[in-house]
Design a protein around this nucleic acid. Structure first.
Lengths: 209, 209
DNA sequence: GGCCGCCTCCACCGGTCGGTGGAGGCGGCG
DNA sequence: CGCCGCCTCCACCGACCGGTGGAGGCGGCC
């Protein structure tokens, strides 16, 4: 019997997974949890063989929750999310996820994925597999320093270099230095492309109204 | 008996909604559909009282599907989606949706929402209601002309004005004219802020890797 | 026909931006 | 201690950008 625990902030999704998995003779849902913060505690209490983890939750820390769960008890974590944001796949696997499935997987694929992960296999959706393959080909995951981050965030708000310099209490020359290094790291040549590239890679959050 | 049809590309979500709604004595799920394209045809065939419609689907045209369904048969459409992107709410309601609920609604709220919508009420999640209220306060929904859209998309890719002029086969002066009007409409004063503002309002898609 | 919105284009200006090619200080690590 | 990464700053350049204040053409709508 494979003991599964669900972490997802959407009751509808938990309900769907539960009915789908409980219909299988060899799978049992032993717990569920609606937020990332209490995932580790729930896992420690229910000691599942496998945790199905949503990535996007209030506080948006499915990745952190994955790390917490793995630190709290010996189990496997399979990420089950809606979109295949490339950045998410990388961060999830870095955090120790044993699999990355999308919610539009047909039910047979989901069930088989759960069994495969419980057997110890790493189960990846095709898009996620492609992303990981691409990531190892390119051994340069662009990591920005805190200051570079600050400058880029300000740029995304539409501030000019002099304005950024005032806001961060540094010289305009310094702003330019940081920005040039950001361009280099993101492989772009102007501030606007830097912002979109950063959003695409999850370095900056998707802007909201 | 309230006859409900489900439109969502995720089998898991459909499964969850079906088991949740079928548990109610006065609700019956009479059809489901995994893509926006065939939603109208399915609705015409099953003639539901209510359609629960996901907004984000392959082809991302839940709004268009809402309009199609309403054109194809007399029913009500309630949008049931994951995030409360402000732009989505506005477009969905414009397309004729009778409600806008989020997937993190507790199951009791969902069921009550379905009943209320079937009674003819307009059912809005709190966040969606706030957005609509804000929208009527501000009677300027920034609509870009096709050409302005073209220019803005090019800007988001990091192209300079001369490059955009070459790509669109127009003069650089024309590019600037379009851009200035975009700035005005989006209430910003530079290209980078224009791109983030456009992404925030759903005018431009969230950039992907 | 008249009006209006959209697209197109022009010349000119000052400020900003991307880029070069440096430099020094400071903290951590082996 | 020396090395390295990060942060800070400088001067200078040419290109580009935002903004002004125009203009004409074209199509749809009343």
């Amino acid at each position: 019997m494979i003991r599964v625990m669900l972490v997802d902030d959407h009751p509808v999704v938990r309900e769907g997974l539960r009915s789908l998995l409980d219909a299988e003779p060899d799978i049992e849902v032993v717990g569920e949890c609606g937020d990332a913060a209490s995932a580790a505690a729930t896992a420690a209490a229910t000691r599942p063989d496998l945790v199905l983890m949503d990535l996007r939750m209030p506080g948006r820390d499915g990745v952190a929750a994955t790390a917490d769960v793995l630190a709290a008890c010996s189990t496997r974590v399979v990420v089950l999310t809606t979109y295949d944001h490339d950045g998410d796949v990388l961060r999830a696997v870095e955090a120790g996820a044993s699999g990355y499935l999308l919610k539009d997987t047909p039910r047979a694929g989901l069930v088989e994925g759960v069994r495969a992960a419980a057997r110890g296999e790493t189960v990846l959706a095709p898009a996620a597999a492609a992303t990981l393959a691409g990531a190892v080909r390119r051994p340069a995951p662009p990591t920005l320093t805190p200051r570079e981050h600050d400058v880029l965030r300000a740029v995304a708000r539409g501030l000019s270099n002099p304005e950024i310099a005032r806001e961060l209490r540094i010289g305009e020359a310094t702003v330019k230095s940081h920005l040039l290094r950001v361009f280099e790291k993101l492989q772009v040549s102007d501030r606007t492309a830097a912002v979109t590239a950063a959003i695409a890679r999850g370095i900056l959050p998707t802007p909201r109204l």
